[in-house]
Amino acid sequence: MWTIPNIITMLRVLLIPVFVVVYFLDWKWAHQAGAFIFWFAAITDWVDGYLARKLQQTTPFGAFLDPVADKLIVATALLLITHTYASVWITVPAILLLAREVYISALREWMGQQGKHELVKVSFTGKAKTMAQMLALIGLLSETEYFMGIPIYWVTLGYGLLYFAAVLSLWSMVIYTLAAWKDLKNT
Rank of each mutant, 00 (worst) to 15 (best):
V18R: 02
W46V: 09
F19G: 00
S105W: 01
L78S: 02
F36N: 11
F64M: 10
T76L: 02
D26H: 10
A77M: 05
L96Q: 02
R12I: 05
A77Y: 08
V13S: 00
H31Y: 09
L79M: 13
N6E: 02
Q57P: 14
F24N: 13
W27Y: 15
S105F: 09
A52E: 03
K71D: 04
K28W: 11
L97T: 07
T9Y: 00
T9G: 00
T3F: 06
I16W: 12
T58K: 14
Q57G: 12
A41T: 09
A77K: 08
Q32H: 01
A63K: 15
P5K: 08
F64K: 13
Y103K: 08
T3H: 04
A77C: 13
A42R: 03
L97I: 10
A99W: 10
I4D: 00
T59A: 03
Q56V: 01
I73Q: 09
T3K: 00
L80K: 03
V22Y: 06
T58S: 15
F61R: 02
I7S: 10
Y85L: 11
K54V: 08
H83W: 11
R12S: 03
W46S: 11
L25Q: 15
Y50R: 02
L15C: 13
L11K: 00
Q56P: 13
P67H: 04
L25I: 14
Y50E: 06
W27E: 13
N6F: 06
V22I: 14
L79P: 14
T84F: 11
S105Q: 04
I8M: 04
I7K: 11
M10K: 10
W27H: 14
T76C: 10
S105Y: 15
F24E: 13
I95K: 12
V102M: 14
F40R: 01
P5E: 01
V22N: 07
T44K: 05
P5G: 05
H83I: 10
G49M: 07
L51I: 06
Y85E: 03
Y85G: 03
A35M: 05
F19N: 00
P17V: 03
L14S: 10
I8K: 03
L11N: 02
A30T: 03
V13K: 03
L72Q: 00
T91S: 15
M10A: 14
I37M: 08
K54D: 11
L80D: 07
L80C: 12
I95T: 05
G62Y: 07
L80Q: 07
G62A: 00
L15Y: 10
A99Y: 12
I16R: 01
W46R: 09
W29S: 13
F19S: 01
A52T: 03
I95E: 07
V74S: 11
V74H: 05
T3V: 06
K28F: 13
L98A: 10
L55Y: 13
A69L: 00
A52G: 11
F36V: 14
M10V: 14
V74K: 05
V74M: 11
F24C: 09
F64D: 07
R53I: 06
W89I: 08
I16Y: 10
H31F: 11
L65G: 11
A30G: 09
R12M: 04
V68Q: 08
W89Y: 08
P17N: 04
A30M: 01
A41V: 04
V22L: 11
T44W: 01
